[in-house]
Simulated scan of single mutants.
Amino acid sequence: MRLLPIAATAAALTLTAGCFSQSGTDAKGGSLAKGNSLKGASLTVGSKEFTEQLVLCQITALALRSAGATVKEKCGLQGSNTTRTALTSGSIDMYWEYTGTAWINYLKNTRPIGDPAEQYRAAAEQDLAKNKVKWLAAAPANDTYAIAAKTTAAQELGVKTLSDYARLARTDPAKAATCVASEFAGRSDGWPGLQKAYGFTLPKQQVATLAEGAIYDAIGKRRPCTFGMTTTTDGRIKALGLTPIADDKKFFPVYNPALTLRDEVHRAHPAIQKIIDPVAAALTDQVLQDLNGQVDIKGKEASDVAQAWLQSKGFIGK
């Protein structure tokens, strides 16, 4: 999706060099490499700084190495705009972007498209035509915003939908106390737009601005807020017993992740698409929640999580 960091880390990952890489973990051939050779290709994979992006960066690097490419990693760049500029300037060759982010932030469209397939098609077509950025297949996962609460709290308050939540905010604002991250608080596809779409204004004293990572713990403990901004593929949702409240008016944009690369890179190495498209197809909400949770909850390295998942699918060899 997004411009927001999920994990408070920007450190580059220092890993053991492999035979097909300038940095990072080696990868043996699996199903992705069958009939797809990238030997002789030298590619740089980047990502934003939050957990999901770090995992996707490692997945991509390993997938490409399994087909023989030499891959340099620039995982963990600071912010969406920095990462996008790295792509368009040639500092990196590819990274995973989100359909809603590109549509609104880079292509400057004011209204998101509710249908995921149409949103992807429109973003991909415009980005290629205007910026010569090629979009590979989008994953079915939707890393969008959500308002969430402890499952028991949502049940206690009778809040199943955001219309229910808005009603609570209007009638008993203290019970609807909500934590938001600073960027979400100012984005049109965030807090201001949400209040407008659902017809409520929560008093300022019932809105706490926290670092994103702290929000999950806060709503898990119901202190200082019962509800909070989350993202739908974050591993902490399941681990902390949280429930995203149904967006019954479909306010939040669709944020399907897809690997984006400069068109010249795609034309030079068309095998990249054949290698990455099966990976994208396997990335559901549940898969990303699990992969993100292994990093954020269990403390595993993103590279180890990526390697284990790719091997479990037979995408790369063991």
Rank of each mutant, 00 (worst) to 15 (best):
E156Q: 08
E118Q: 06
K298Y: 01
A148W: 02
N36T: 03
L157H: 02
T243N: 05
E125N: 08
D217Q: 12
A239Y: 09
R84Y: 11
I237Y: 03
D247S: 12
K134P: 00
L259P: 15
G29W: 05
L288I: 07
A268W: 08
P257Y: 06
G190L: 01
A7R: 09
T83G: 15
N142V: 07
K72S: 15
N142C: 01
E118V: 06
A69S: 02
T110G: 14
I237C: 00
P116N: 11
W103G: 04
N109E: 04
A153M: 10
I219Y: 03
A258W: 08
L261Q: 10
A197R: 05
A302K: 05
S42P: 14
V71E: 00
L168I: 00
V45P: 13
L259H: 09
R2D: 14
N256E: 15
R167E: 09
Q205Y: 12
I276T: 12
G220P: 13
L62C: 02
F200Y: 10
G76Q: 03
E183T: 09
I245F: 15
A12F: 07
N105R: 13
L56I: 04
L202W: 00
L288R: 06
A166E: 05
D189G: 15
F251R: 10
V254Y: 02
L4K: 13
F50W: 12
D263Y: 04
L291A: 06
S91G: 15
F315K: 00
K313S: 03
Y145E: 03
T230P: 07
K221L: 10
L32R: 02
R170H: 06
Y98I: 11
G314V: 05
L136Y: 12
A141K: 10
L259A: 11
E264A: 07
Y165R: 03
W103H: 12
G68T: 04
W103C: 05
G190H: 00
I272Y: 00
I237N: 04
L291H: 07
A17K: 02
K74S: 14
A271H: 11
P173F: 08
A33S: 09
S37Y: 07
L162T: 10
T171Y: 08
A176R: 03
K28G: 06
A11E: 12
E73W: 05
L194K: 02
I113T: 00
Q53P: 10
D115W: 04
A197S: 12
T231F: 03
T243F: 05
Y95L: 13
H266G: 01
T14V: 15
C19K: 14
K108Y: 11
V287G: 11
F50Y: 14
F252S: 09
T230N: 02
G213Q: 01
I113H: 01
E118F: 11
V180I: 08
G213Y: 00
K74A: 14
K108W: 11
F227P: 06
G199R: 01
A177W: 03
E301S: 07
D234C: 09
Y255P: 00
L242Q: 05
D127R: 01
I6E: 09
P112Q: 07
A197D: 15
P173G: 02
I104R: 08
